[in-house]
Design a protein around this nucleic acid. Structure first.
Lengths: 163, 163
DNA sequence: TATTGATATTTCATAAATGAATATTATATT
DNA sequence: AATATAATATTCATTTATGAAATATCAATA
């Protein structure tokens, strides 16, 4: 599932009817959407054998990337790109599975500290080989230089949001 | 919401613990995810005044881009990047709202033809100005050349999926 | 022509995500 | 200090999305 030609053809039809429709931005947005869906689906499939889905994987990885394996729900929401209500649900699930732990924060009693448990870390290190394989497959068509270039352009685009 | 520095910091922590984690691919995937979430949220917000959400918008636009404003559910699923079960639900909703119509196909009676109604076309042309504005804002940090470059790299990456 | 296998779509039960409202604590202002 | 404002998390009702199974049709072939 990676033929983008039909998408371009549809865009041409659209522009025939509505010439103001901006070709390049529309294509970019559609490409990002398609890539994300693929990433999401493949990550879901890769994580299923481990009893997780893509968003849960992400939550765990954000905590794994925190210096002390701990983040607050709002930090986690920003890091994982999830809405806070969803973070509550996801972390509750992960707590029930024993991979993370909840604790109140002392300095700011509004905050909650979400930390990986030893089991959580063990799980992560068990599935990471699969993820490494997946990431490398998903980017195998791009050279190192192209990856760097793409990274720069995506970052630049991202800055334009929410301002 | 567009500061990507914390993401990179987290990736460094991750790589400190698990050096095999590939930096560039991981960053790319996270960037795409963040961009998609922003695109999704902003499109949802932009479409709300028109009584639609982002996936419904997409369905309509895929039909608008079809030569005769008609596609089958499976074509629509591929075009919009939605699962077929979801396409059934979305198109049922849009039918109920009067924007698209369902008809059986004569040559292949398994197929269903989904077509924009006149109302559907009118709706699209009512909201398109908002979308044009949105698309231009979302890509305003990229020059035309950069947009073309980004398009090329994303397409190249997309080819790597599902093979 | 039966039979087998593939394709197209929908149904259904379940899971996942959202927006709005709420409760609680912190911070700023007067 | 009292009050208003902002930030943090959660709850809840609703919407949206998923995977697996079911239904119907077509296409090939034995």
């Amino acid at each position: 599932m990676s033929d983008f030609a039909p998408t371009e053809a549809r865009l041409d039809v659209t522009r025939g009817k509505y010439p103001a429709f901006p070709r390049a931005p529309a294509i970019l947005v559609r490409l990002i959407k398609h890539l994300y869906k693929e990433i999401h689906d493949e990550a879901n499939a890769a994580m299923r054998p481990h009893g997780l889905n893509h968003p849960e994987y992400n939550i765990l990885m954000m905590l794994y990337g925190a210096p002390d394996n701990t983040l607050s729900p709002s930090e986690l929401a920003g890091a994982a790109g999830e809405k806070s209500a969803n973070v509550t649900r996801l972390t509750t699930q992960l707590c029930e599975k024993g991979y993370i732990a909840r604790a109140g924060s002392e300095d700011d009693r509004r905050k909650v500290a979400l930390s990986l448990t030893a089991e959580g870390v063990a799980l992560i290190e068990r599935f990471l080989p699969d993820i490494v394989t997946l990431l490398q497959r998903q980017t195998r068509n791009l050279s190192a230089g192209e990856q760097a270039q793409l990274e720069g352009l995506l970052k630049k685009m991202l800055v334009g949001f929410g301002e």
